[in-house]
Design a protein around this nucleic acid. Structure first.
Lengths: 214, 214
DNA sequence: ATCAAATTACCCGATTCTGGGTATGGATGC
DNA sequence: GCATCCATACCCAGAATCGGGTAATTTGAT
């Protein structure tokens, strides 16, 4: 029997999870939590094997909660649930040793598979998430129906531009010449048909490039 | 009896809605749809009073679906469901005459109230959504614990900067002098402690300022 | 060995942006 | 009437960016 705690601040999502899991013979829902603090409260009182953890929660978010649990409850397998456009903490979570990383858009069968895999002490990462970890930031994009490939350095530069750093600041950050940064920026703009720092920032936001690097 | 169709491409969300609504004596779920096309297919076969409509769906998104339904099935009350960080089409939807606009983060009671209100032919808009419509873009923000108020013009400028327009282009767009745009940009940067077009774009993304104006 | 990709670096001129300052007129509220 | 806010407009100097071009070296695949 897998004891599972569900953590998400969206009531409808919780109801969705419950609806899916309550009829599984090998799964026992020990409770729900709407924020990280409630997670800790419930876990003090009930044995738990798997935690389904939303990242965006009030009071204590998913990352903080996971960090706390790694030391206080290392036996609990954590499955992170997130939206496609919110993969910001993917590497932090993976480094923390979470057992799974699944998109909220996944279907029932994937959710169940992730839970059972995690309960066995194994890892389950969504395909997309796996591809992000593996790609190490070399990324393909479709721009006007043609395939564009950005190098790792280029995606580094995009992220730093999107964070508001000037060319000089980026150069200092990466220990290279500002002229080199300029060259990268020129190549990026050419490849992606961008024309301003705003365009670059816009691109970074709409293509999940603000993910913190491992 | 309210006949209701649920449209969302996230299976877990659908299960959540079903879980909440299936036990209501006055609500009859006529079906589910994972994209706009399925919505139209179901509506050709079954009578429907209320449509719960997600905006982000494949094949035919929520806005397109709503547009189509306004002419083909004007008797159906549409309740839009959306995430807090995705209010881009709020004015388009309101202009289309949707009966409700609710955040996915809402609880059961608000969802039920919205459905019953819409079924009565009345409007139900989430508080936050209502405040956006009413504010007409004059907006308050908290920057370093102090309250900052932006004028409508300033939020116009922010949005256009975030869309990548140069000062000259913005001036052309708004029929004013580029010098005026510069002045507005200076005031915006001062108020919000921003220092580059990237900062402005970043702010626009993180504060929902890319909403299209009515 | 050859080739392609990635990284690093540079020159150039033109355009754009920032942040300091100035000012006026209109609308609104007291 | 007065004060405030907003929109509009301008001057200035310096910094930043773009897009045109150039080049060399390293690495990995064939």
């Amino acid at each position: 029997m897998i004891n599972i705690l569900l953590a998400d601040d969206h009531e409808i999502m919780l109801d969705g999870y419950i609806s899916i899991l309550q009829h599984q013979e090998d799964i026992n829902i020990i409770g729900t939590a709407a924020n990280g603090r409630e997670v800790l409260t419930v876990l003090e009182m009930k044995p738990c094997d798997v935690l389904l953890l939303d990242i965006n929660m009030p009071l204590m978010d998913g990352l903080e909660t996971a960090k706390f649990l790694r030391s206080s409850k290392p036996g609990i397998s954590i499955i992170v649930l997130t939206m496609l456009n919110n993969l910001r903490y993917i590497h932090s979570m993976v480094d923390l040793g979470v057992s799974g990383y699944v998109l909220k858009s996944c279907g029932k069968s994937i959710l169940l598979e992730a839970i059972r895999t995690a309960a066995r002490g194994e890892k389950y990462f969504d395909e997309y998430v796996t591809s992000i970890i593996k790609a190490g930031y070399k990324r393909s994009f479709t721009v006007d129906d043609s395939e564009v490939v950005l190098s790792e350095r280029e995606t580094d530069i995009i992220r730093l531009v999107a964070l508001g750093l000037t060319t000089k600041q980026i150069a200092d950050e990466l220990f290279i010449s500002p002229l080199t940064v300029q060259t990268h920026r020129k190549n990026i703009n050419f490849k992606l048909q961008l024309h301003s720092p705003s365009d670059v920032t816009h691109f970074a936001f709409t293509h999940n490039l603000l993910i913190s690097k491992p």
